[in-house]
Simulated assay, not measured.
Amino acid sequence: MPLGLLTGVWAAGPQRGRAVVVALYFIPLLMSTAAVSVVWGALLDPNFGLPSALPWLFGDGNILGNRTSALVAIAFIYLWGASPLYTLIFQGAARSVPAVLYQAAQMDGAGRVRQFFSITVPQLRNTTITCTILIVVGTFTAFDIILILTRGGPSGGTSILPYLMYEQGFISYDLGYGSVIALVLVVLATIVSAVMVRVTGYDKMAGTQEGL
């Protein structure tokens, strides 16, 4: 969320060369998650990937063979692949903030940092809430990266509920257990969504430009 907010606000600006940087940054959006996972699997291969080329940085190179480093790698890949989407959302929202607010702040002597926290962040409140709900609920369906890269390993260290459902239902053919896990996922996602909507006031959102 912070990365998407910061890059989205920056991408909405008039910086020179911004379009080229943004186009490169949005490349993961053009690729499926499966393709992204295959690419990173090749990059993290201990024999032919980055670990073999940079042993001083990656140690023994078996990143996906260690529970801690595998979780970090999966989180990083998910961040790399998903953050451009939220950057795009925040970019569109930031461009809808009335320029008159920034002009008034400049006349009052407010710098860019003060403008960001006093104008941009409050104006993007509804967008932030929406993206937060999408991110949290989306984690309940994270599956393909783990399936392709680690298959729940090592020693079950990356086996989250969606993958466990797949493993029990389609590998072990224990359809009853797999169905129960699927039901638990649906219930958890529903409860979390309802709580977030209630706590954040998503159901009572009002336009941030009212009165302008």
Rank of each mutant, 00 (worst) to 15 (best):
I77T: 11
I77R: 07
I77E: 11
Y78E: 14
Y78S: 15
Y78M: 12
L79E: 12
G81C: 12
G81D: 14
G81M: 13
G81N: 14
G81L: 09
A82V: 10
A82W: 12
A82S: 15
A82G: 11
A82P: 03
S83D: 15
S83L: 11
S83P: 12
S83E: 14
P84W: 01
P84K: 09
P84C: 10
P84M: 06
L85Y: 15
L85F: 15
L85M: 14
L85T: 04
Y86V: 04
Y86Q: 02
Y86L: 04
Y86T: 00
Y86M: 02
T87F: 03
L88G: 00
L88T: 08
L88S: 10
L88A: 12
I89E: 09
I89N: 08
I89L: 14
I89W: 01
F90R: 05
F90E: 06
F90H: 05
Q91Y: 12
Q91I: 00
Q91T: 14
G92T: 07
A93D: 08
A93T: 00
A94V: 13
A94E: 14
A94G: 15
A94M: 15
R95A: 13
R95L: 12
R95Y: 04
R95S: 14
S96C: 10
S96K: 10
S96E: 13
V97T: 05
V97H: 03
V97R: 02
V97N: 01
P98E: 10
P98R: 05
P98A: 11
P98G: 11
P98N: 08
P98L: 11
P98F: 10
A99S: 15
A99I: 10
A99W: 06
A99N: 11
V100S: 14
V100T: 13
V100A: 12
L101I: 09
L101D: 08
L101C: 07
L101T: 03
Y102V: 00
Y102L: 01
Y102H: 08
Y102D: 05
Q103N: 13
Q103H: 09
Q103F: 04
A104L: 09
A104P: 03
A105V: 06
A105N: 10
A105C: 08
A105M: 06
Q106T: 11
Q106E: 15
Q106N: 12
Q106L: 13
M107Y: 06
D108M: 07
D108F: 03
D108R: 09
G109P: 02
G109C: 02
G109W: 01
G109M: 00
G109V: 00
G109I: 01
A110T: 05
A110W: 03
A110F: 03
A110R: 05
A110E: 04
G111K: 06
G111H: 02
G111Q: 04
G111Y: 00
R112Y: 02
R112Q: 08
R112C: 06
R112P: 09
R112M: 05
R112A: 12
V113A: 13
V113Y: 03
R114L: 06
R114C: 02
Q115R: 11
Q115Y: 05
F116T: 04
F116H: 02
F116N: 00
F116Y: 00
F116C: 01
F117M: 03
F117R: 10
F117C: 03
F117D: 04
S118F: 00
S118V: 07
S118N: 08
I119C: 04
T120N: 07
T120G: 11
V121Q: 02
V121L: 07
V121M: 00
